[in-house]
């Protein structure tokens, strides 16, 4: 008798659970899809919708780079190479090259945290496709530029001041809204 009961129960269970599952899937037919039709059928580019902390392709603001080499040292895969040259006459130090190999970069964000001025930072850009791997090495120095020296008592040049402001703000946002948190305290 129990065998018959089991037999009937098997059938009813199958029918009811399939019925329930069909109801679930049917209900999804009338709901809104979740797809984002990247890249063209979206109201605004994905880059603009990403949070500020998003770790995209690295960018460097050479105007406020102090050449402290903290980023080069902290990078676990050495994808940053910086060349600095001191001129014999004027003792002026200039960058000869500042290259970041996007192929190697693993977007860990350690360099951006180590930077004292916030000149190296992650952008919201993530589309880096190109036909040649060599094109993925970003050269930030095309002609020798002098190093930035932070002035005591704040920046006077308005354009530079704006850039310094952006860098510091980035450091703040990237790290923590609350004082005491984030990478700022990591300097031991």
């Amino acid at each position: 008798m129990s065998a018959v009961g089991e037999y009937v129960r098997d059938i009813t269970e199958t029918v009811t659970t399939v019925f329930e599952g069909m109801a679930v899937t049917f209900s999804h037919l009338v709901r809104r899809p979740m797809t984002i039709q990247y890249p063209d059928r979206i109201p605004k580019p994905v880059q603009e919708t990403l949070p500020l902390r998003y770790r995209g392709i690295l960018e460097v603001d050479m105007d406020i780079c102090t050449g402290c080499l903290a980023c080069e040292r902290v990078c676990p895969i050495s994808c940053i190479t910086i060349g600095i040259e001191t001129s014999k006459e004027t003792k002026q130090r200039t960058f000869t090259h500042f290259d970041i190999d996007i192929c190697k970069c693993m977007y860990c964000g350690l360099c951006a945290e180590a930077c004292p001025t916030g000149s190296i930072r992650h952008s919201q850009e993530f589309e880096g496709a190109c036909y040649n791997p060599a094109g993925l090495v970003r050269h930030f120095v095309t002609e020798p530029v002098p190093l930035y020296k932070p002035k005591k008592g704040g920046e006077t040049d308005p354009t530079l001041a704006e850039k310094v402001e952006t860098g510091l703000k980035y450091l703040d946002e990237f790290a923590s809204p609350e004082k005491g948190g984030g990478a700022g305290t990591e300097e031991g």
């Binding site: 949070p51 770790r55 860990c108 964000g109 945290e113 992650h122 809204p177 609350e178 948190g181 984030g182």
Partner: peptide, 22 residues
């Protein structure tokens, strides 16, 4: 996760001594 730590898969969020970003 993207909001918390800036990456979707390879987070690098937890650091020695705490977390990278609040």
């Amino acid at each position: 996760m993207e909001e918390i730590c800036g990456a979707r898969l390879t987070y690098n969020y937890i650091r020695i001594g705490g977390v990278g970003y609040d």
